[in-house]
Amino acid sequence: MFTGIIEDLGKIEKLEKEGGNLHITMHTAITNELKIDQSVAHNGVCLTVVGIKESTYTVTAIQETLDKTNLGLLNVNDSVNIERAMKLGDRLDGHIVQGHVDQTAKCIEVLEKNGSWVFTFEYDKNLNNITIEKGSITVNGVSLTVVNSMLNRFSVAIIPYTYEHTTFKNLAIGDTINLEFDVIGKYVKRLNDLRN
């Protein structure tokens, strides 16, 4: 369980393919606090720490994860949003995030708004995910509030702190991002679909 509040920007040190798996080695400021078997969200994707060496750690993404997320598009030296799983009893500053990406989307517009930014994303509506105005959404692991919700697109407003401390500062039109839709909304939609 995560909150969508990013702790650190990790830097990819090494990518190693092995069959359908991708071993991702990251450098972060929090590596010394990690342990083997710990769950860490990478651009919103929950992966297990399988190795630690000095200031780097390694996680493995299987083919299923690579097919459904943007992790397979990463390159050495790319930045990744990093969040450790929440501790029981901690404040829930963002929203309930599982670290299970529902689908990817494309950034289709970036507008600077006098000190803040509005990013617009378009996703495949055929996967039956929805957003609602002022609802929660996770973009590359960042807990955000939806603005301008439409059938297959939505926008988010980004404050300067979030822009500087996440991968939003590197995000450009055409980039692929990971989306995790609000878990409560997914259950409500599923129940409604079953009734109809």
Rank of each mutant, 00 (worst) to 15 (best):
residue 159 I to W: 08
residue 7 E to K: 10
residue 29 A to D: 14
residue 181 F to H: 02
residue 23 H to L: 14
residue 79 S to A: 13
residue 18 E to R: 14
residue 78 D to Q: 07
residue 19 G to C: 06
residue 57 Y to G: 04
residue 36 I to P: 04
residue 145 T to A: 10
residue 69 T to Y: 03
residue 105 A to N: 01
residue 56 T to W: 06
residue 154 F to M: 01
residue 61 A to T: 05
residue 153 R to V: 03
residue 57 Y to V: 00
residue 21 N to R: 12
residue 180 E to S: 07
residue 140 N to F: 04
residue 37 D to I: 11
residue 48 T to N: 03
residue 10 G to V: 03
residue 107 C to D: 01
residue 104 T to G: 10
residue 144 L to G: 01
residue 125 K to R: 13
residue 53 K to V: 09
residue 21 N to Q: 11
residue 5 I to T: 09
residue 154 F to A: 02
residue 10 G to Y: 00
residue 66 L to T: 03
residue 150 M to A: 15
residue 63 Q to C: 10
residue 91 R to E: 14
residue 65 T to N: 02
residue 119 F to T: 02
residue 112 E to Y: 10
residue 160 P to T: 08
residue 71 L to S: 02
residue 173 I to H: 05
residue 87 K to E: 14
residue 89 G to C: 06
residue 99 G to H: 05
residue 146 V to G: 04
residue 142 V to S: 08
residue 16 E to C: 13
residue 41 A to T: 04
residue 181 F to Y: 07
residue 31 T to E: 09
residue 45 V to G: 04
residue 37 D to T: 15
residue 170 N to V: 11
residue 65 T to P: 00
residue 181 F to P: 01
residue 61 A to K: 02
residue 17 K to D: 12
residue 3 T to R: 03
residue 38 Q to C: 12
residue 41 A to F: 04
residue 129 N to Q: 12
residue 50 V to C: 09
residue 185 G to Q: 09
residue 139 V to C: 11
residue 95 H to A: 07
residue 127 L to C: 02
residue 71 L to D: 04
residue 96 I to A: 08
residue 66 L to W: 03
residue 89 G to D: 01
residue 17 K to T: 12
residue 133 E to Y: 11
residue 21 N to M: 09
residue 54 E to N: 13
residue 28 T to E: 10
residue 194 L to C: 11
residue 194 L to W: 12
residue 54 E to F: 06
residue 13 E to K: 14
residue 4 G to M: 00
residue 177 I to P: 00
residue 14 K to G: 09
residue 179 L to T: 00
residue 140 N to D: 14
residue 59 V to G: 02
residue 139 V to I: 15
residue 98 Q to P: 00
residue 147 V to M: 08
residue 107 C to Y: 05
residue 67 D to Y: 09
residue 45 V to T: 09
